[in-house]
Amino acid sequence: MYSSRKTKRRPAGAFTLKLIAYGIVFAGAVVMLLPFYFMFVFATHANADILSVPPPYWFGDHLLENLKQLMAMRPNFWKSIGWSLSIAAATTALNLFFCALAGYAFAMLDFRYRETLFGLILATLLLPSFVSMIPTILLMQQIGWINSSKALIIPGACGALGIFMMRQYISSVLPRDLVDAARMDACGEFDIFLRVVLPLIGPALGTLALITFIGSYNNFVGALLVLRDQEVYTLPLVLRSLQGTNGVTWGALSIGAAIAVLPLLALFVVYSRRLIDGLTAGAVKG
């Protein structure tokens, strides 16, 4: 017996079209990945190899020399990674706490002007970042936070996007009765947040942590505005300072870039699905 579906033939044209489309998708994927590939390849080659024609397409054996050169040029390279990571960690921790707290209030508590205040928070998302660049420099100069990590951590400790995300998540998963039950159980308002709400929003906290951490770790412009001394440079600034410096080889630059990219690359390999879903959830609903 032949089912009618099996015997129905596809037009040959559709098949070739499909093949071409697959080809384009994979070619695109290659374009997306090639820079990363060459970053790692160059990190293992001496300058002479990289500058030869054609350039190297496969890994070499110059990795350690490149690393040594990088360390010689920028002795504070490792420190700047630690610096970047700790600034990102602090920003993330603060954001998780403050955004969850505010998101919880907007999702679960009744108060006057709730919608207005929430609207204001969303409206700040529309402010283009460049209008605050000059004012931020001025403010940080006035209060003496130039060259201080505070200037990077504190202003971004409670992001509008994070509040939005937390509100969406909390209002979709937490029943209001739960909060009321806790109130009946003599739980204070802050205790409710700490003991009942926080333990139940783990997934959203995880996604927000990813997003904030990545944003903070990659933050170049903010650091450029307020960090002036090499001593306190974060990773992007250190890398940027290597650019055009006499005697820096492409190999050393590449290994620096590779090391800078690796932590997030690792994070992304594990959590890409979650990160992508988290970032788009707000866009689809909002």
């Binding site: 039950a181 806790a182 109130r183 009946m184 003599a186």
Partner: peptide, 17 residues
């Protein structure tokens, strides 16, 4: 406050933690 009144409530949704 609710916790001070000495009333206890059972919710339709149970509202267990």
């Amino acid at each position: 406050d609710p916790g001070e009144r000495g009333a206890a409530m059972v919710f339709q949704s149970y509202a267990l933690y």
